[in-house]
Amino acid sequence: MELEVRHLRALCAIADTGSLHKAARRLGVSQPSLTTQLRRIENALGGELFTRGRTGCHPTPLGRTVLGRARPLVDGMTALVAETRAAAARAEGPALRVGSTASRALAGWLRRLRQGLPGSDIALRVDVSATALLRATAAGRLDLAFVHEVEGCPLRVPDGLRGRVLVEREPQFVSMARDHPAAVREVVDLADLAHDRWTVDPAVDGEWDGLRRVLTAAGLDPPVLHADYHTAASLIALGEAVAPCQPTSGPREDMAIRPLRGDPLAVRLFLFAAPGVPLDRPYAELAAAYREAALRAAPYRSWLRAGGTAGPCMMAV
């Protein structure tokens, strides 16, 4: 077996995420496929590259040696592809490449950008991983990255990116089945959810760590289901679990969204730009789009008008 760049990229993804599951999500392959690929790479090199345990995947001494040689090759190939694509895009006309974690403000932001940049081709990449988006921006594959940082789990921002805080502290609400006993309350205590299962997406940077910290502080140790967004929505609607959610989340007939008392869960929202990419205009358009999304969401609108403070773009609600 001859090693290719895709094999080196897989090794770097495993090391960066510390998990075969998260690395597979990042690479867009199944976990069994990645596990088989890793086993073949290790067989070709003649030694174990990662130890696998309950705490995740960690490079062995041999793995660290291989990664030390692999990373410059992967970074160089990534830069080559990014520069080639950027040159091709410039030849075809103006383009703006936008990356974002999921947000209700995204559609309004893109609409505003298109109106402000008539004739421009705006490309969009949505990813659950803020880290992946920031790295893509640093590598020249994206121009802008709208990302969130879970409180207590700081992001590692690559050198060279310029960023501004959009929302200093966005509270995370909780979503539950419409007939959940706590749904009759305007504000929910964590104690009201003491007997519920929680669901989180482990591929979202910091989400499980942040939730675990808050639940532990409240003296709770509930069962946790790891699921992607669509699976989680089904579990919640059927009363099988509850989950943290963005306060801008839209209404659904089969779900209730409520603030948590004391706002124990929160994220910070950022907009980052690649070197040489203007930031002021996209930031202003994003702030306006976020404010619109916040005011459309009745629970968030009520929270803000009751004295909640999210950030600069939410002043004078």
Rank of each mutant, 00 (worst) to 15 (best):
L80S: 13
D127N: 09
A89S: 11
S120T: 11
L134P: 06
A105W: 09
T55G: 08
R169N: 11
R90D: 14
A132Y: 01
D75P: 06
R97P: 08
T137Q: 07
A79W: 08
A89K: 05
A139F: 08
S129M: 10
P158V: 11
A136M: 14
A139T: 07
L144I: 09
V126Q: 12
E83D: 15
P61L: 03
A86T: 14
F146N: 04
E151F: 09
F146E: 09
R54I: 12
F146Y: 14
V81A: 11
D143M: 07
R169F: 11
R90I: 01
A88V: 12
G56R: 02
G152I: 10
T78V: 09
T131D: 08
T65C: 12
D75S: 02
M77W: 10
G99E: 03
P59E: 00
R156S: 15
F146H: 13
T65F: 00
R114W: 03
D121P: 00
S103R: 00
A136E: 09
R164W: 02
D143A: 01
A102H: 10
G68V: 02
D143E: 07
V157P: 04
P118F: 03
R141Q: 15
A89T: 06
W109D: 01
A82K: 04
E149R: 00
A87N: 08
G56K: 08
V150I: 14
H148L: 14
L124A: 09
L124H: 03
A107P: 05
